[in-house]
Each structure stands twice: as structure tokens, then as C-alpha cells.
């Protein structure tokens, strides 16, 4: 078996150690004897072909970098939408999450989004910064990470990725964080999201494998003692109880 991962614009969207997510997906496949190939599209690439891609990853960038990316990605809006609607796996964090929506309204301008999710973002007064813990319906392990965003994202009728147990989340008020839609995971938990959340990483890997290999049933277990300890350290430190 083989999974092909596409990292979109790592040259622009790489603000917070996003490569941790790519390495995590790659290693967790390889440890199970599944081949992993990582390809990148940078701003110098002109082609855009998702036909043999199994997982797309979009990271975070500064507002300035996000504008450049958006400009480029809008040219491929249709390909990305078709990919998602057909069940393609996609993970988007931070700036990448905002880009999936209809728009991101800044103080003095509005950045048009990819309109893959029926959500929108508006710039808020203060940045929402800190450790964050979520409980998701889709996995047992709490999701832990760090958020740092000026935008407030309103997700309408979408299903959130999780309920905020500690931290701010999408808009500071609703108690919801991120979006989960078909095989898309979109979240403000930036940077190395997957290493401390092995169950979430495996959830996405399984989705991609199921789509590509209909006979695939489930991933073999791994020794996740270190990952689980790191996850538990955060939930215990912030005294999170459900």
C-alpha cells in the first residue's frame, strides 16, 4: 500500500513548525509498512494535479503570506473542491483553515477564500493565544495543541472538530473548535498538531487508506507511549475534565 501526501506551499505556509505534521503522517505510515511519498507544491510550481493525491496538507502563514497563497490557490478552487467532495483527505491548520472558508475579513480588506467549507472569518480585536484542549466525538483521546489567531471563525451549520475544554477555539465564545467535514480536518491548533495527537493523525490516515483501498479495514497499532504521555501531560497540566 502507498499513500501520497501533498504539502501545499510549504515555502509560504510554514509559520509554526508545520513540517511536524508531515513527518508524523509519513512515519506513522512507514512504521506500519505502508509506503509514504511526500510531494510539495511551491510558488514556483505551475501544475496542479490532485488525481493521485491521497492527503492534502495546508499549513499556516502570516496574513501577508496567506494573501499570496490565496491568490494562487483560487486558480485551483475547482480542483480542490472536487477533491474534497469526492472524499479526499485534507488537513488544514491555522491560516490554512481560514482559507477553506468563504472569506477572511481583515480591518482594511477582505481575502476571498476557497469556499470549500461554508464558514467565514473576521479579524477580532485581540489575538487568541495559548494552549488548548478539545474533546472530539470522533476519537477517544483529547486533542491538545496551541492556538494563535487574530481571526474569529464562524462555522454555521458545520460540525466542529471538537468542544473546547481549555482555550478559546473558533470564535472565543461558541465553545467549538475547528471543522470536520467529509474527510477534511480543519483547525486552529497550529504547527505540530499530529505528533501529540496520534489518534487524530491515524483518523486521517485511515480515511485516506479507506478511500484508496476499499478492502482496507484498520491500521495496525503502534507503540504510542511517548505520544500518549505528551498528550496526557497537557490535559493534566491544564486540569481538563470533561
Amino acid at each position: 500500500m502507498k499513500i501520497k501526501i501533498l504539502h501545499l506551499y510549504p515555502d509560504l505556509l510554514n509559520l509554526y513548525g508545520d513540517k511536524g505534521n508531515i513527518e508524523c503522517m509519513r512515519m506513522r505510515l512507514e512504521w506500519r509498512g505502508i509506503d509514504a511519498e511526500v510531494v510539495k507544491y511551491t510558488c514556483e510550481d505551475t501544475g496542479f494535479d490532485l488525481s493521485d493525491i491521497d492527503i492534502v496538507f495546508v499549513g499556516g502563514g502570516s496574513d501577508r503570506e496567506q494573501k499570496i497563497v490565496c491568490h494562487r490557490l483560487l486558480e485551483h478552487k475547482k480542483e480542490l473542491r472536487d477533491y474534497v467532495e469526492a472524499g479526499g483527505a485534507l488537513a488544514a491548520v491555522c491560516g490554512g483553515y481560514q482559507l477553506l472558508g468563504k472569506y477572511y475579513k481583515l480591518e482594511d480588506e477582505t481575502i476571498e477564500g476557497l469556499d470549500i467549507l461554508d464558514i467565514y472569518t473576521e479579524q477580532g480585536k485581540k489575538r487568541l493565544i495559548g494552549n488548548i484542549v478539545l474533546k472530539s466525538e470522533f476519537i477517544d483521546q483529547p486533542i491538545v495543541g496551541f492556538e494563535n489567531h487574530g481571526g474569529r471563525t464562524y462555522i454555521g451549520k458545520h460540525m466542529p472538530l471538537g468542544k473546547v475544554l481549555y482555550g478559546y477555539g473558533n470564535d472565543e465564545k461558541s465553545g467549538a473548535e475547528g471543522v470536520i467535514y467529509k474527510n477534511v480536518i480543519a483547525t486552529y491548533l497550529h504547527g505540530p498538531l499530529f505528533p501529540k495527537n496520534p489518534e487524530l493523525c491515524d483518523y486521517l490516515l485511515s480515511a485516506a487508506l479507506k478511500r484508496k483501498y476499499p478492502s482496507f479495514t484498520k491500521l495496525a497499532p503502534l507503540d504510542d507511549e511517548l505520544e500518549n504521555t505528551a498528550n496526557k501531560y497537557i490535559t493534566e497540566r491544564f486540569k481538563v475534565s470533561e
Partner: peptide, 9 residues
């Protein structure tokens, strides 16, 4: 800095 994401950079 409270955020240790940079470890991956």
C-alpha cells in the same frame, strides 16, 4: 514563549 511549535523548525 509558551508555544513550543518552533521545535519542529
Amino acid at each position: 514563549g509558551r508555544d513550543v511549535s518552533w521545535l519542529w523548525d
